[in-house]
Write a protein that binds this DNA or RNA. Structure first.
Lengths: 200, 200
DNA sequence: GCAGTAGGTTACTCGAAGTAAGTTACGAGC
DNA sequence: GCTCGTAACTTACTTCGAGTAACCTACTGC
């Protein structure tokens, strides 16, 4: 089997097993066996167990970026922008229920470099939020814009985890909830930024 | 050295080394050496590497609960309740900069049971938020109350991580930011809950 | 002064990450 | 239609760290 195809297959299998059992509880031999190949092949293509994990995260990250970019393309107002972005995110999570928890949770513990990949995902999201704030309110305090973006990302991420435990809650309702809590405050600040005096 | 004292010492050392190097990169031999004791003693008192990690998290959790409970004791309004709770949380994080990141991040990856301990911390927080919502608006939809609590916890947690990277941002300002984004939306819903129609 | 137990150690096993060295399949060029 | 080179792959290790078995020691109550 050609390299690219084999790598993709390895990522798929690894993502599944990692998600099932957790990163620590999974051995490279087990992944190799389920792929139908020997362990050194995994090392040939991904360098280490950590490298394999990073590969999984990276692929998910790329996919998420593409879907989000497509979703927000036609947004006209900051509210619509944010809503479409959140919805794309929750839909992505919904489709990847299995691997999601692992990739976020497990990755963080495992390795510093995996942590960077996960931070990369968050960076994409905070950048998106930052873009909303900055494009519609150019004179907003940068630190405050950053804080707001982090808050929105944190809220969204947490609700995504919660959504998994609540089968009755789908992407649309999750988006509604986040918007209901977040939007009044954000909208408020878009019109009237915090005064610099508070930034002691 | 008596057992209780030795255990406390082990937790302190473990927390420090885990935070420095990460859970995976730390060996039990190393912890044992730095404690000045042999490895089987760690197993005697904590059962496993995972057990040791859980011990660290559990101790932090207990301390956080006590501090938070003390802080919110005298709150009169839901807003003050929430603000004092958030402030107590951010102050706790600020005092535990080193171990904080590890305990949250690493624990998640490492072990299912450590995950439970971390979830316990979050549960404390969501319970607190839930209490605010329920006590001041008894007829709020339980699912919605849960979602709101998760959103607040997620936002807070993420901002705590961000605060660590921004030395100029202290607990007070972090609290301000979270309240600025979160409060208008929560206040809004306290007065006028989401209609059941949306809970399709 | 002896028994029992709390607190401790040395010296192992075992499983999993990572590696060295070698093997097979297969297409390109003659 | 044979052979050279390389891509894809394997077997058989080494190494390191989690966890354990078996044994030791010193103190405290009687």
């Amino acid at each position: 089997m050609p390299k690219a195809q084999r790598m993709a297959q390895m990522l798929t299998v690894a993502e599944e097993i990692f998600a099932e059992q957790g990163y620590l509880a999974t051995s490279m031999d087990e992944i190799a066996e389920r792929v139908g190949v020997s362990k050194p092949m995994l090392y040939e293509y991904f360098g280490s167990k950590e490298g394999l994990l990073i590969g999984c995260i990276h692929r998910a990250r790329t996919e998420l970026r593409e879907k989000t970019a497509a979703a927000i393309a036609g947004a006209a107002s900051p509210e619509e922008f944010l809503r479409l972005g959140l919805l794309a995110f929750f839909e992505f999570i919904d489709e990847h229920r299995r691997s999601w928890a692992l990739l976020r949770q497990e990755a963080a513990v495992a390795v510093p470099s995996a942590q960077e990949e996960v931070e990369g995902i968050r960076q994409q999201q905070t950048d998106m939020i930052g873009a909303v704030l900055a494009s519609f309110t150019p004179d907003i305090d940068p630190l405050e814009a950053e804080a707001f973006a982090e808050i929105v990302v944190g809220a969204t991420e947490r609700l995504a985890v919660w959504m998994e435990r609540r089968p009755s809650v789908g992407p649309a309702l999750a988006t509604d909830y986040v918007m209901a809590v977040i939007w009044p405050g954000v909208d408020n600040r878009l019109r009237k930024p915090l005064s610099p005096a508070r930034l002691a």
